[in-house]
Design a protein around this nucleic acid. Sequence first.
DNA 1: TTGAAAGCGCTAACAG
DNA 2: CTGTTAGCGCTTTCAA
Lengths: 337, 337
Amino acid sequence: MPPARRRTSISDVARRAGVSVGTVSNVLNRPDRVTPTTRERVEAAIGELQFVRNGSARQLRAGTITTAGAVVLDVANPFFTDVARGIEDRLDEAGYTLMLASSDEQPEREARYLRLFEEHGVQGVMVVPATDDVTHLVDLHDRGVRVVLLDRPSPVEVLSSVAVDDRAGAAAAAAHLLDLGHERIAFLNGPHTIRQCADRSAGLRAALADAGHDPDEAVVEITLATLNADGGQTGTQQVLALADRPTALLCVNDLAALGALRTLRAADVPVPSGMAVVGYDDVAFAAELATPLTSVRQPTHRLGHRAADLLLADDPAPSHVTFQPELVVRASTTGLT
Amino acid sequence: MPPARRRTSISDVARRAGVSVGTVSNVLNRPDRVTPTTRERVEAAIGELQFVRNGSARQLRAGTITTAGAVVLDVANPFFTDVARGIEDRLDEAGYTLMLASSDEQPEREARYLRLFEEHGVQGVMVVPATDDVTHLVDLHDRGVRVVLLDRPSPVEVLSSVAVDDRAGAAAAAAHLLDLGHERIAFLNGPHTIRQCADRSAGLRAALADAGHDPDEAVVEITLATLNADGGQTGTQQVLALADRPTALLCVNDLAALGALRTLRAADVPVPSGMAVVGYDDVAFAAELATPLTSVRQPTHRLGHRAADLLLADDPAPSHVTFQPELVVRASTTGLT
DNA sequence: TTGAAAGCGCTAACAG
DNA sequence: CTGTTAGCGCTTTCAA
């Protein structure tokens, strides 16, 4: 940690150019209001001194900035980076900048970044909440920060949200597996404090119940410690150790499915004859795996784009957008190439 | 874009609690210097008013903050997110926060984010330069911002850098392909303005020359528009259209290799008998693909961790760290499972 | 067109 | 232990 440096300020520039600070500020913000001659002098001074505006001071006066923040569960998950990309693209059009952070599903980390963003006066935040409790987000909203819930429907009217129907996604996967004759399904899921996970669980059970099965019998749900390949690996090991082993495996995301496939291969369990596998998100590599992965596709880019839309909207009234997912069937369930 | 909101300030809190602003500041920063009774009163006021510190003002006084910025080429590339993860982990230990941005290999975008970071007084920046010219980074350094070059060796002594030996990586891939009898290699590379790409090209050619081949004959280099799966797909189509088709394909990263494999499969070109494929980065999914991918592994997490180390170092003297890559051989070159 | 000066919200030095 | 106050760098009236 180096010692605090003394940055050159607007008054250094003013002195150098032989003008007042007000004039420097003018060439910076309203160049037309200043004589070309003096402007050139000031610009020369800026160049020589390598002057860079102090954003904090600027913002302190202005109150807020053209920056938005996003907090997702895991930047290492392609699903979230694709969503972030959608956000960035939309923000870019409006001249806004995105600050991206990852909560790692930890509410404290989420809170920390949210606070950082708020303290620095962002226009708004888009967040995939790490927990079911959104009161802190409502508070944030009440303090004048635009809040858009990402990837999950808002439990409260006042917060905007852009989501994908998670019950439908899980139900589609369930229907497909039932079609193929599977009657016991293991679900490698995240904790139900994450709404998407709770919804997918509900969707899965509802679909099974509709088909005349007892969900408590038909579904073995395992809660993953981490929603990535390592989590999927550990979860799959647990499934394999089960006495009455299910014949199909639904994974909370494709990263977990990757871990599952790896584990099944190591255990010499053929896919799908020994165990059918369904992922979630349909990330880029899903189609290219050793066993191409059946997965629930979500409109990632549009999700992010739309969220940024709501963030930037002139009308502060909250909106709630829900997209529909789509099951993409591949060899990990059908065995067909 | 909502209108500027009036945030509640420290003086609002002071008024409410019936104390001075100095006292409020004290309970915020040095709680021990204030009587428990008044502290409670102030804390109550903070709670009632939902007060949130104004970071800009705070920082304006302090001069700089415990935040670092990182600009990578593409956040959607797992290689970079893994590096970012290494950075974050190290920064976290020191109580620092990371602001992550993606330049998309565009120098203007890189400059924009760098400026944003600098204006907001970050302690330092870690950047994977989008161009070969680093004078703007030297200037940044001269202005007192810590600069660490990520994933490429510094061309100037004064800038710290953390890199992986790109010539060695490409050379290892070349040696492996030569061993297998390949004498013509297509290289799906990025523009040479990106140093890593230039170095890998040089390493590849040098290795071939050392083995007695004429690099101009043995290597067909194709420059990708985008360093991802789409780029790899387009590049591979070009390779397949070549009159004297090479027998091996080296890709600038695993994303491009993913696109290559997809394209080869669509064209019914068997891997590796019709075309051997080597990736770069050895990302998580490389081992799980339909044809497990031979790839050059880089120590991503350590790379980021080390970069953050340099950023945080007490000693401002520049260091230059180079890691060695490691070729991981899989079926996409050997055909063995 | 340019300059002088107030003030954004906060922290820290100094008085009381 | 608490209050007063200067000042961080900038933008923006208001005067000249």
